[in-house]
């Protein structure tokens, strides 16, 4: 099972690319697609979900071109779009029955699968209530359930934790980890902690280009000995932000505790600390922006 993306580009206007010359090879496991808003994540997701077509390039699912033969992938695809909506007057069971039929499951198999999934996403008690009365997190769980109906080999979830409270986010990340057996999961987000917890590989993307693709631990080695932390007075913060890449600020009793990414120690009292994925992400995005 493999998904290969080769030199993929999506041009929206003459001078604007959603994706540019993007290549990637994915194998089973969770791949976190990390990038700021407007980076091209949703464009990539929609092309992989066979909803949009690329301007150029190829996407191969087990060596079959999905642009030419989308149904090859659609049969084994689970997709949760960023702006997932529901039919408010249907209940969860009715909605999932509907989605199961659309995906080609027969009634008996669908019923069995729906029962399983309602337990997995913890919606058994609310299963007969109209979806219009669900909270954002509950709707998102229905979205995940519909994406899993056909037991997909490729699961694409686009910004799934937007609108979820912290507890629901943790539950969702755990659910993804449980699901990541023998399937490829692509998790797109701009929230670093989401991918940090769940992803076995991380792809960083900005302005339609791939910045990094590696395992989280490999990405962290990029900033070994380059992250510094110390306390400064609040009035020095603007100046520091102009000179260095500040990846974190915390208010303390004696001032502001800052976290800075720098090749050398930015101040005598700065202490070298272990890098986080957020440091790496901010460094990559700011470097890419600076190169423009």
């Amino acid at each position: 099972m493999k998904l290969t993306i080769m030199n993929l580009s999506k041009q929206y206007r003459r001078d604007f690319f959603g994706l540019k010359d993007f290549s990637l090879a994915l194998t089973p496991g969770i791949t976190g697609l990390l990038g700021p808003n407007g980076a091209g994540k949703s464009t990539l997701m929609r092309i992989l979900a066979t909803i949009n077509q690329p301007t150029s390039g190829t996407v191969l699912w087990n060596d079959v071109d999905i642009v030419k033969s989308p149904d090859t992938l659609r049969a084994v695809l689970g997709y949760l779009p960023q702006d997932f909506g529901i039919y408010p007057n249907l209940n969860a069971v009715e909605f999932l029955e509907y989605m199961a039929a659309i995906k080609g499951l027969d009634s008996k198999a669908a019923r069995r699968r729906i029962e399983e999934l309602l337990q997995v996403v913890n919606l058994v008690e609310a299963a007969k209530r109209p979806l219009g009365g669900y909270s954002g997190g509950m709707k998102q769980r229905v979205g995940i359930a519909q994406a899993l109906l056909n037991d997909p080999q490729l699961l694409i979830v686009d910004e799934p934790t937007v609108g979820l409270d912290p507890e629901e986010r943790v539950r969702f990340r755990n659910l993804l980890t449980d699901l990541s057996g023998d399937r490829i999961i692509i998790l797109s987000t701009h929230i670093v902690s989401d991918v940090e917890a769940a992803a076995s590989e991380i792809v960083m993307i900005n302005r339609g280009r791939k910045l990094q693709h590696a395992a989280p631990e490999q990405l962290l080695t990029l900033l070994d000995g380059k992250v510094w932390q110390w306390v400064i007075s609040a009035d020095k913060l603007p100046e520091l932000k102009r000179e260095y890449l500040v990846s974190g600020v915390l208010r303390r009793e004696n001032g502001m505790q800052v976290r800075v990414v720098s090749e050398t120690a930015p101040a005598p009292q700065a202490e070298c600390v272990a890098p986080s994925l957020e440091d790496v992400y901010l460094r990559e995005v700011s470097q890419e922006a600076a190169s423009k």
Partner: peptide, 17 residues
Amino acid sequence: ARDYQTGVGQIMAATPL
């Protein structure tokens, strides 16, 4: 139009229907 607005249409577009 409702399928388009709610996003359900996107899910359908990613199925063999």
